[in-house]
């Protein structure tokens, strides 16, 4: 079996397993929060249109960009290798005729796909409910795809980083929480080049400054406050490099490291 076939098989196995877990159900419920918010906003402010929908869309994006994808990536990313050690199921995987990096890559891909589906469903429902008055506007769909793309890149970059943390550390969740909700939340507001040491900086750099034909000013400021954006191309390259580098490190570590079960 080639390495890419091995990755595909691991992807298939964990794609199936991932859907069955309680964790997926909990995160799916969490993903309902913005949907409920969108429904409430539509009911309360049903007669008002214009900037209001954009403001709430920005609020939704703050939730997705700075909370939902971070928490998803933290729990799924760190569990790529750590849960196999904690649950002592690692023996079932590393005594198979597949290279160890295929386990990391296949499981990462499976969890990334699962996270993307959770995010896409939650964002799709909440976004279109919130902007129900503009469903005929093609720009709405383009903006949605842009948001979804940014969140997808965020899932990959955060997921890869947390996969690396889970491979190298025993208590990766704690370090991951500090990184995801401490470092990322602070560093992005630093002026100059310091903000470029956060993943969220590149994600925000890919967001539209002013969603076409709608909000300008207040709504946008929620996400782009103090941002000195990097160009879209460089942002995509930076996110791709972060993803590739941390995945490569995770694969290398997983290959050379011994994992001992705690008695």
């Amino acid at each position: 079996m080639t390495a890419s076939q091995a990755v595909r098989q691991v992807f298939g196995f964990f794609g199936f397993l991932g859907r069955r877990t309680g964790k997926a159900r909990v995160f799916a419920l969490l993903g309902l929060m913005p949907v409920v918010l969108a429904v409430v906003v539509r009911i309360v402010f049903h007669s008002r249109t214009g900037p209001l929908a954009s403001v709430f869309t920005e609020i939704l994006m703050v939730f997705f960009l700075q909370f939902y994808i971070v928490i998803l990536a933290l729990f799924y990313g760190t569990s790529v290798t750590a849960e196999e050690v904690e649950n002592r199921t690692l023996s079932y995987l590393i005594t198979r005729p597949i290279p160890k990096p295929a386990v990391v890559l296949g499981k990462f891909a499976a969890y990334a796909a699962l996270m993307f589906v959770l995010v896409a469903v939650s964002l799709g429902l909440s976004y279109f409910i919130m902007n129900a008055a503009h469903l005929a506007d093609p720009a709405l769909y383009l903006t949605f795809l842009r948001y979804l793309g940014v969140l997808g890149l965020g899932i990959l970059a955060y997921g890869a980083f947390f996969t690396f943390l889970g491979t190298v550390l025993k208590r990766a969740i704690i370090v991951g929480l500090v990184f995801g909700f401490g470092w990322e939340n602070v560093i992005q507001y630093f002026p100059g080049s310091t903000q470029r040491f956060s993943i969220v900086h590149y994600l925000k750099s890919l967001l539209p400054y002013a969603p076409e034909g709608r909000s300008a000013g207040k709504g946008v400021a929620l996400l782009l406050f103090r941002l000195e954006p990097t160009s879209p191309l460089l942002s995509i390259l930076a996110l791709a490099a972060i993803t590739a580098a941390f995945l490569a490190l995770a694969c290398w570590l997983f290959r050379i490291k011994e994992y001992l079960y705690e008695e």
Binding site: F16, S91, I98, Y261
Partner: peptide, 23 residues
Amino acid sequence: EHDVFYEDVTGWEFLTGLLRFYG
């Protein structure tokens, strides 16, 4: 040795899942 499994799958899914890794 340890009595550990992927608990949320059936016996059939467990076996077929692991057999995937043999090509």
